[in-house]
Amino acid sequence: MDLSAINPTLLVASLMVASTPILLAAIGELVVEKSGILNLGVEGMMIIGAICGFAAAVVTGSPMVGFLCAAIGGAAVSVIFAVLTQYFLSNQVASGLALTLFGLGLSAMIGQSYVGIKPPTTYKLDLPLISDVPILGPILFSHDFTVYAALVLVLGVWWFLKYTRGGLILRAVGESHDAAHALGYKVVRVRFMAIMFGGACAGLGGAALSLVRVPQWTEGMTAGSGWIALAIVVFASWKPERVLLGAYLFGGVAILQLNLQAAGVSIPVEYLSMSPYLITIVVLVAMSANRAKSALNAPAALGRVFHASR
């Protein structure tokens, strides 16, 4: 056992990269859930984003076009969910699960001719002096742009929800769609846009996986990241800043586990792998134990079907 082999600076730097896909997906899902919609299709939207981004980047040779197409692809499949739940008033849980299954299948079909191909390299920040500063350089100034984009997005969502009129309307729709409707807000339109935003974020998350973190395309490569993103939103009790914490924590566990193994510590991997889910369950139990507090956190209209006639 040689724990000194683990370099804390590199550990933090690499957990930031590893967490970015789930962070992007989670912050999108947070906005969706804040509007009162439970979309369990994150995994499906992520993998569609992963293949759309990968294919576009390979065809055009530009990672930026890839990320753009990933966002469009993720948003496009989320429209299916939006139409089903907003216009046909179908069950959100069932529709979300169907979206995940659909996304996994469709991505496998699109991706058949892209297996084993190397994507173009994504631009990485490399500032001559600043990136070489000890500790801060590797952690803050040497990542690819998705890491920064995710952080900016979290900040933006936090600001939007807290300080803007649009954010207030979104939250109102999520808390009580009947009241928001009575006030004249377009509940369906707001939710439609929130769902598409969530889809675009999940798509970006998928592309961060297929273009930066791995970088490669393989069938089913999201391997449960979408579910972890869903868990993070609950873990974070629907607060953007806590989503950041949760994502780094959940991503960090995976990286830490590998680091401990390489350093020769024999740990039962199963426990570390299940720990994110265990934490989520504990948080859920703790939250439901205190009813008044949990009522403050979860959007009151989450998962409920809205129809203007009622």
Binding site: A5, M221, N259, A262, V269
Partner: peptide, 21 residues
């Protein structure tokens, strides 16, 4: 130990960690 025969994400992470160490 990756505990998988085929998972590019895990394999890539494992390789990066080894290189970092």
């Amino acid at each position: 130990w990756a505990y998988t025969w085929f998972d590019p994400t895990k394999e890539a992470d494992a390789a990066k960690v080894l290189i970092e160490q």
